[in-house]
Write a protein that binds this DNA or RNA. Structure first.
Length: 532
RNA sequence: CGGCGCGUGGCGCAGCCUGGUAGCGCACUUGCUUGGGGUGCAAGGGGUCGUGGGUUCAAAUCCCGCCGCGCCGACCA
């Protein structure tokens, strides 16, 4: 290779020829959504500094900006759970293997993804090369599994706590981590260990338990819609997609930007299956021994992945204001030494006053980014993180008593110059506007890609990409009449990777027609889609 | 568990074919410069080349074993 200098390529021209640098003005995330959606998703998480893969297979490190979102979800949802009469408790991480055996379909459902604890200590073993290896020792009489879900161990506790109909209903929630040994992990969407809440309730009657199941589904729906700006669709799962051990499984499904479906939350009516398996019995009003009717319901860190896939764009994350860990970031512009202190003081003062105001029941969270970094670099960082509002305060603004305000749901260069008082006054409503615009945008996308389909031919066409090797974004929600069998469902899944996401509740899906596979009469349309 | 690919400073990679004691970009540190949109310049710091063995005067490079990871399938919230 000839020396670079002879060709006139100094370091400077190297910099200019760097494709990464040249790409900068266009957009922050590479590849773009349209080019490679899964890779884009990974890159957004990285650019937004929300999480990273850890050295433990399938387990992620959730970084402060990502965990901050989880903290918001937790604290806000927890209030909703309390409001509906639930109390928090905590149960063991480890579950005796025998507990899992108590409910037949439950074991089947989870057996293949259990982490098993078999020993309770380590012994140092000297290796021939002088190093020391720790070997498991002290084998347990009965192995434990790390909870993949807690129906059985909470059921065992319920069995102790319930003896009379007067002890019911029992309304418990647990915030915790669970582990499911997934073969193919994906940050936030499917990790081997994930954070969630699991509600477990026991009731005197079937009716009451079903009501509880649907009530919590409603809580999920409104929370996701109002706080996460996710337009979810409520419905019931078909038998093949049902939770192992449940009589019926309800869900909230949403469509993300590559038009695939994500189940964002579930609520199960467990009938008396787990009550019988765990011995949750009580003496009823008439004096007879009866089994309780139980429910369970949960949402996880997957919701964060769903939000990213729904709201983020080619410049990174866009946080819905109601869930954003920080609502507003202030970037002081300090070009000159002699005005620096005054600008910083104004920024701090503005932040303090803004922080005294509230938005959607929270104090407005403001951060002043006074780091000694280039202003443009800082702005881009916050764009990628998706903070809803960026405010710049520089010497010029200071003189005019104004601030420059930019919204993450608009073009980056679009800035409104507002008087300080005006900005303080308007910010809560601006945040709500952003919240509304995100939901509206997501809704529009979802509606645009829902299609009534009545023939198998059209169905296949809808779910087949033009380019088989590198499938482009295609498909969506196919709304179809369905009266087919379990086998028909399995065949569609095998052929096209498409499944029934849910049988929706909404009236708009209820109309009579003919099943596009079996030709049998059907009373309503269901949603078919590819899913995560 | 099957198919493919990859392990070289924190990250992304080149070097390997044809052996000769390690290089690039980003990030980091320091100084100057710049600052209303990813500033520029200069000087620095940092590497058991996944691991064990073999061949050789000499191994990141060649040979054999092992380990780990990623992607694609089956499974799944």
């Amino acid at each position: 290779m000839p020396p670079k200098n002879l060709l006139g390529f100094g370091k400077m021209s190297d910099q200019k020829n760097n494709p990464a640098k040249q790409a900068l003005p266009q957009n922050a995330i590479s590849p773009r959504r349209a080019e490679d959606f899964p890779e884009w998703f990974q890159q957004v998480i990285k650019a937004a500094d929300m999480a990273e893969n850890s050295e433990v297979r399938g387990c992620m490190v959730i970084k402060p900006w990502g965990y901050g979102v989880w903290e918001q979800i937790q604290s806000q949802m927890d209030k909703l759970f309390k409001k509906t009469g639930h109390k928090n408790a905590y149960f063991p991480l480890l579950i005796p293997v025998s507990y899992m055996e108590r409910e037949a379909s439950h074991v089947d459902g989870f057996a293949t993804e259990c982490a098993v604890v078999t020993h309770h200590r380590l012994e140092a073993v000297k290796q021939p090369d002088g190093s020391v290896k720790m070997k498991p020792a002290g084998e347990l009489a009965e192995p434990y599994i790390i909870r993949p879900t807690s129906e059985t161990i909470i059921g065992a506790a319920f069995a102790r706590w319930v003896s009379s109909y007067r002890d019911l209903p029992l309304l418990i929630n647990q915030w915790c981590n669970v582990m499911r040994w997934e073969m193919r992990p994906r940050l936030f969407l499917r990790t081997a260990e994930f954070l969630w809440q699991e509600g477990h309730t026991a009731h005197e009657t079937s009716d009451e338990a079903v009501k509880e199941t649907l009530l919590m589904l409603d809580v999920y729906e409104s929370f996701m819609r109002d706080q996460l700006a996710l337009p979810v669709i409520k419905g019931e799962k078909t038998e093949s997609e049902r939770f192992p051990g449940a009589l019926s499984t309800y869900c909230v499904e949403t469509m993300v930007q590559d038009r695939k479906a994500i189940q964002a939350g579930t609520s199960h009516f467990l009938g008396q299956n787990f009550a019988k398996a765990c011995g949750i019995q009580f003496q009823g009003r008439s004096g007879s021994q009866e089994h309780a009717w139980t429910t369970s319901w949960g949402v996880s860190t997957r919701m964060i992945g769903t939000m990213i896939m729904t709201h983020a764009d080619d410049d990174g994350m866009i946080m819905p204001p109601r869930i954003a860990p920080t609502h507003v970031v202030i970037v002081p512009i300090t070009p000159k030494e002699d005005t620096r202190d005054a600008v910083l003081a104004m920024a701090q003062d503005f932040a303090k006053r803004l922080g005294e105001r509230s938005f959607a029941g929270r104090q407005i969270e403001v951060e002043v980014d006074a780091r000694d970094k280039n202003g443009g670099e800082k702005s881009w960082e916050w764009i990628k993180k998706g903070v809803p509002v960026r405010i710049e305060i520089g010497p010029r603004d200071m003189q005019e008593g104004k601030v420059a305000l930019a919204r993450r749901d608009r073009a980056h260069k679009q800035k409104d110059f507002l008087l300080v008082e005006e900005a303080l006054e308007k910010l809560p409503s601006i945040l709500q506007e952003i919240q509304d615009s995100l939901l509206a945008r997501a809704r529009e996308h979802q509606n645009a890609h829902m299609k009534k389909i009545d023939s198998l031919e059209e169905f296949k066409k809808f779910f087949t990409p033009t380019n088989e090797d590198k499938p482009e974004i295609h498909g969506g929600f196919a709304l179809c009449h369905w009266a087919g069998s379990k086998d028909d469902e399995a065949k569609i899944k095998a052929d096209l990777k498409v499944t029934i996401r849910c049988v929706p509740f909404a009236d708009s899906f209820k109309e009579s027609g003919t099943c596009f596979v079996s030709g049998k009469p059907s009373k309503q349309r269901v949603i078919f889609a590819k899913s995560y």
